[in-house]
């Protein structure tokens, strides 16, 4: 096995209504502060039919927090690479 390339951020999903929650609302659902949530990533809809959204947070901010029914995670955010040569 090679060296680990996992990043120091993780993904979480939150279940909300049909409308995407704001960053503040997502943070509240997660039980973290707004500053723990990656604002540049934002709140990303991954399955709007299920009201499911992804957010990116620092790995340390949610590591010890219990998941609620509306929260899933932490999910990995691994490095990805091309399946071919690059310059």
């Amino acid at each position: 096995m090679g060296e680990s390339h996992a990043s120091d951020t993780i993904l979480m999903t939150v279940q909300a209504g049909p409308q995407a929650p704001t960053l503040q609302e997502a943070a509240r659902i997660l039980g973290v502060t707004k500053s723990d949530v990656d604002a540049s990533f934002g709140v990303v809809p991954i399955d709007e039919e299920r009201g499911l959204f992804a957010v990116k947070v620092g790995a340390a901010s949610v590591a010890s927090r219990p998941a609620s029914d509306a929260v899933r995670g932490p999910f990995s955010n691994p490095r990805i690479a091309t399946f071919g040569r690059t310059r």
Binding site: T9, L11, K56, S76, N77, R79, I80
Partner: peptide, 12 residues
Amino acid sequence: TPGGSPTAGLLS
């Protein structure tokens, strides 16, 4: 993103 590289990325 920190953790990425010039020709790699992160799943996010």
